[in-house]
Write a protein that binds this DNA or RNA. Structure first.
Length: 424
RNA sequence: GGUGAGAUGGGUGAGUGGCUGAAACCAACAGUUUGCUAAACUGUCGUGCGGGUAACCGUACCGGGGGUUCGAAUCCCCCUCUCACCGCCA
């Protein structure tokens, strides 16, 4: 969430930023927050005064009893009743203000970076650059779900039987290709300086709030109600929460971590051709990279992460484009996001395979992830993350783009990991 | 699942009602000394909120919530978690 300090000191700039993100009633909400904060401060002041008075009397009573002046001590006790009553009421009032303030703050999305293009929908995203070659496919080219069936790589129906739609079963070279991609991505990440993490796949509510899945995206996660735990929708959640309530030393920054995990998403409301095959699943594999950095370095970090993800897509020889998301298409918590899409040649569609974002201090503020500067000041870190990469759509594009009459060709970089050059 | 013990600052760990936001030690940081390193010595060293240009002041926090009391890290209740042993088990 945004810091109060930022909202109060930069009211107009904040509202302008929220407009760019198409946040409704920005002025109203921001001014409510500012007013609530004033009330909160006044209440706090009154409460502190009452408590100070109480503490003073309590100390006096202690001293009087020490001196054996019992009757004077008794008299002093009478005085505290009034302050006690007062501070109790003020305390309740303060809690209310704090709760209201927090609720309001949680409703406010992050502010977009100045370089975020204006716009409302995906149509308005700006293409940063493209790479790779879109293959010239014959008309009889098959979509990946047909290829998966022909070569017995993925069994969607079996998944339906075991679990339900959106939980495919990978078999043989299909399963080995998945494993190859995971190892490839993790090795690449390690070579790029990321610390490999194997995180829990289930998290508690504190972690859900820490990275912002709760409360706004509650319905998107699978909830294990008996234990009040959530299946992770991305490794971002457990990995970023490593830094919850942590104060890092300046020299410890940046921190770079990478993790593979299965990701679980309910995808409530999705339907139609978008969800065909591997395009949208309830469970999928993904390697995520997470970075914690000093504010002044975070945009350099973001660039580095984008270049890193780009290197992966290039090594996989996939045609891709990098989009700078517009204000309306960005996620609630992001300041600047680049999406990576690969072209899936038989479907003739661009598929999103990565989303790389700088959250600035928005997540860190909820997480209470801070660092101590050389001058000894405690400041919020900036957090960033990106997919590097999500498996299913990569698999979809690999299958479709590399199909030949003799089978499906495996890109060179992946052959050592797969142990085969062709799927036939 | 059963039984028992515990949860204190970056770490170890004292502290059973007022002089404790918290001893001591370790780590860390700064300085003195030194050819360099080390050692030794000196000092600093939690977080949030409110007030103040600032020095600083007030307030809250000893797992979380509630209670007793003029006053709670310390007493009472509830919850959570951790550890140990037993049972079960990849």
């Amino acid at each position: 969430m945004l810091t109060l300090k930022n909202i109060i000191e930069n009211r107009n700039a904040v509202i302008e930023g929220l407009h760019k993100k198409h946040f409704a009633e920005a002025e109203k909400v921001i001014d409510e927050i500012i007013d609530l904060d004033k009330e909160r401060r006044n209440t706090q002041k009154e409460l502190d005064t009452a408590l100070a008075e109480q503490n003073k009397i309590a100390k006096q009573i202690g001293a009087l009893i020490g001196q054996g002046k019992r009757s004077e001590a008794e008299a002093a006790k009478e005085q505290t009743a009034r302050y006690k009553e007062q501070s109790k009421l003020l305390g309740e009032k303060l809690n209310e203000y704090e709760k209201m303030l927090r609720d309001k703050l949680l409703q406010v999305p992050n502010l977009p970076h100045e370089s975020v293009p204006e716009g409302r929908t995906a149509e308005d995203n700006k293409t940063e650059r493209t790479g790779g070659v879109v293959p010239d496919m014959p008309t009889e080219a098959l979509p990946h779900w047909e290829l998966a069936k022909r070569y017995d790589l993925i069994d969607f129906e079996l998944g339906v039987k075991i679990t339900g739609a959106g939980f495919p079963v990978y078999k043989g070279k299909g399963a080995r290709l998945q494993r190859a991609l995971i190892n490839f991505f993790l090795d690449e990440a390690r070579n790029a300086g990321y610390l490999e993490i194997e995180p829990p796949h289930v998290v508690n509510t504190d972690s859900g709030y820490g990275t912002g899945q709760l409360p706004d995206k509650e319905g998107q996660m699978y909830h294990v109600t008996v234990d009040d735990l959530y299946l992770i929708p991305t490794a971002e959640v457990p990995v970023t929460n490593i830094f919850r309530d942590v104060i890092l030393a300046e020299k410890d920054l940046p921190r770079k971590l990478a993790a593979y995990s299965a990701c679980f998403r309910r995808e409530a409301g999705s339907y139609g051709k978008d969800v065909r095959g591997l395009n949208r699943l309830h469970q999928f594999g993904k390697v995520e990279i997470v970075r914690i950095d000093k504010p002044e370095h975070s945009y350099d970090s973001l660039d580095e992460m984008v270049r890193y993800v780009e290197s992966l897509v290039r090594k996989l020889e996939l045609p891709y484009r990098i989009l700078r998301l517009c204000g309306g298409d960005m996620s609630f918590t992001s300041s600047l996001t680049f999406d990576f899409e690969v072209f899936s040649a038989a479907q003739k569609r661009w598929l999103e395979v990565s989303s790389v974002s700088n959250f600035e201090s928005y997540q860190a503020n909820r997480l209470k992830c801070r660092y101590k500067t050389a001058e000894g000041k405690t400041e919020l870190c900036h957090t960033l993350n990106g997919s590097a990469l999500a498996l299913p759509r990569i698999v979809a594009a690999l299958l479709e783009n590399n199909q030949t009459p003799n089978g499906i060709r495996i890109p060179k970089a992946l052959v050592p990991y797969c142990g085969f050059e062709i799927i036939d």
